[in-house]
Nucleic acid binder design. Structure first.
Lengths: 212, 212
DNA sequence: AATTTCAGTGCACGTTTGTTCACTGACTAG
DNA sequence: CTAGTCAGTGAACAAACGTGCACTGAAATT
């Protein structure tokens, strides 16, 4: 067992290249859709020969599916952050939007990939994102159930509300990404809009009564 | 002026080919994103040689921008239908969702194009859709203003609510399109979900008070 | 020390791509 | 009747594409 800080084991070097392929693709997807990115282009940017690509993925589509997991991590982290933050309670919404903004600022490529490919060209990727997003919505549903304890909401109605919130927030994400970070005042306006929309939904929930 | 029922004038024949190019592209976009559709493919399906494409559009991107107008027509028609329909008033929401479902059923390709390319790869197309959608939202804002007369909502707040509704409805459209029309019972469930979400927003609006 | 494994190389192939250019011939205008 | 317009043609091109195959050489296994 050689514990050398430089150049490591073979398995590790492979993993490194694999990660480079994912990173490079994620970066390219920022400006063009996955379907229009070629295998050769990705290989070139990752510094390997085109045929070596196949040592890691069977096709670009397969890489895309892997990329979904990769990109969902910040979203999952987000919900964990939102829970961990001791409940300021009176302003969960402001806090949530803040966390969202932070995550988008820190992981623009991941969010760009998710929002762009959600309805994008590659069916397999689209389906993978839909599945992950469903899991995310169902996590949010659990949180909403905690907040509405005592108001006897049905799970179905909670899911409906959670879905609407996720939709609204993903829309916010796309709007944020389109400002390029070049106009920080625009970003502030978008976040303010998002906050009001979530607040509107919350108000609606206060007035809602689930059918028994 | 020869008024022949067959084969018409030159200008008309050109217009016909142009329309065929648009139609063919719209159909191809149903299964793959615009960025991955080639000029040659479109020309082939339209029954002309690749070079003749340039008699109508400077590039595929330019065609895409034109396609936005084409595809917004059903959406505009929708809002007109919603207005024309004498106000059943008590159930505007149910009526709206019904009209939406009808338009999606009748013009799946147009809606597919809009939702897919909204965040898709071609920047020019993305911007064109954003502009048209902003106009659509602003039309809806006017309608909301009429419905909330007396509740002194600010225009800004009305726009916020309209934006949320449009977002929710576009999400519904995408969900509808993903069922392929193969599972009509799924479509019904999606529409029911959409209706509940809009109702939730409406409830929120009832409880909302704009800051002066 | 000898052998196996396998990430990455290099070449080759057949396709498909966008775009150029000179052309043709049916329609239009004078 | 004549001349001009211009939508569509067809050949040609350089470039990029996905993928197959035999290979190399350092690391891992024996």
């Amino acid at each position: 067992m050689t514990e050398r800080p430089e150049s490591r084991s073979r398995a590790e070097r492979k993993e490194r290249t694999r990660q480079r392929l994912l990173d490079v693709t994620l970066h390219l997807v920022t400006e063009r859709s996955l379907a229009s990115i070629s295998l050769r282009e990705v290989a070139r940017d990752a510094g390997i020969v085109p045929t070596a690509f196949y040592r890691h993925f069977a096709s670009m589509d397969a890489l895309g599916v892997e990329l979904v997991d990769e990109s969902m991590r910040p979203l999952r982290q987000m919900i964990r952050d939102a829970r961990r933050g001791r409940v300021t309670h009176s302003d969960i919404i402001a806090e949530t939007v803040e966390i969202l903004a932070k995550q988008v600022r820190e992981h623009p490529d991941q969010f760009s990939f998710l929002t762009r490919e959600r309805f994008g060209g590659v069916a397999a990727v689209r389906r993978a994102i839909a599945t992950e997003l469903r899991l995310f919505t169902s996590d949010l549903t659990v949180d909403l159930a905690r907040l509405t304890a005592g108001y006897d909401w049905t799970t179905d109605d909670l899911e409906m509300a959670a879905d609407l919130m996720v939709t609204a927030m993903l829309n916010t994400v796309m709007d944020l990404l389109e400002t390029d970070g070049r106009h920080p005042e625009d970003a502030a306006a978008i976040l303010e809009l998002s906050e009001r929309q979530l607040r509107l939904i919350a108000l609606g929930m206060g007035a809602w009564r689930s059918k028994p």
